[in-house]
Design a binder for these strands. Sequence first.
DNA 1: AGCTCTTCCTGAAAGC
DNA 2: TGCTTTCAGGAAGAGC
Length: 279
Amino acid sequence: MEFMPELPEVENIVRDLRPKLCGKKIIGLKMTAQTAIAGHGSVSLAAAKDRTIEEVTRKGKVVIMQLSGGYTLLVHLGMTGQLLYSDKSPEFNRYAELYTRVLIFLNGASELRLADMRRFGWVEVMEGDKALTYIGRLGPDLLTIDLETFKARLSVRKIAIKVILLNQGIVSGLGNIYADESLYRAGIHPCKKGDTLSSEEIKGLYDSIRDVLEEAIRSGGSTIDTYRLPDGNKGRFQDRHRVYQRQGKPCMRCGTKITRMSLRGRGTYFCPRCQEETV
DNA sequence: AGCTCTTCCTGAAAGC
DNA sequence: TGCTTTCAGGAAGAGC
C-alpha cells in the first residue's frame, strides 16, 4: 500500500484521466461512507450534476477538473487516495469496494470514484472565482517553476529547507518521499535554513527536484497502476528510493549509514555525510 | 514569523 | 497467543 500520491503520481493520473474524462457529462454523484468534502469555500457536490468536464489538470497534488458553467471540481488524494475510472460494468478491486468515498457517474455508462482508506483525501466543487482563489494560494508547481522564482521563494525563509519544500503554499507538489530524495541528491541537510542556502545550493536543489520528479513520472509513479491492477503492479518509483525508509542501510554514494530523524513530526531520512550540516 | 502540539483516520507493527 | 499502544502521513488550526 505504497501510494502516497505526490506530484509525479498525480501528474500520471491526470495524463491518464484527461482523454477519458474530457467531454463527459456528470449525470450523478453519490457520497458513500463518511464523506470527504473539504471546506475551502465550496458549494454542494450536487452542483456538479449535469455539467460537462471540460479540462483535467493539476497544480501540485491537487487535481483540477474544469466543469461547464464556470464550476470546478477539485480532488486531493491525501495519503492513500485513488481516483479510479471505469467504463466497463463497474468492476473494481477490493480496495475500491471497501474504501469508496465518492462516486461520480458519467454518461456512456462510465464512472469515476475516489477510494481512500485513511480519508485524508477530499473532493470539493467550487463556483467561479472560488477555485481560482484556492489554487492561487498554492505555491508554484515544482514541475514548471523557473529557477528565479524558486530561489526567491526559498531564500527568504528562515525555516528548515525540508519544511519549506513540504509547505504547499510556498512551492507545491512535493511530499515526504520526494522532498527527502531531492535533498539527498542535492547533498543538502534537511534542517538547513532556507536563507542560508547559497545560489549554487539552490540551483543544485532545483535541478535535483526536477530530476527526481521527471524520473518518477517516467517510472510510472505508483498510483497510475492501481487503475487496473491495484494489488499487483504498483509502479517502480519505490525501487529508486535512495534514502526514504532506508535508515541503517548504507548510502549508495559513500556507504555511511542512512539516518532517520523526526522533523516537524515527519520521518526524515538523509545521509549524515553527503548531507552534512554546515551551518 | 516560526515553532510545537493537536486533530483527522486506519492498518501495520511493535510492545507486553 | 492476543490484546494494547504507537506510529505514519497531508494539511489545517490553536496557542505561544
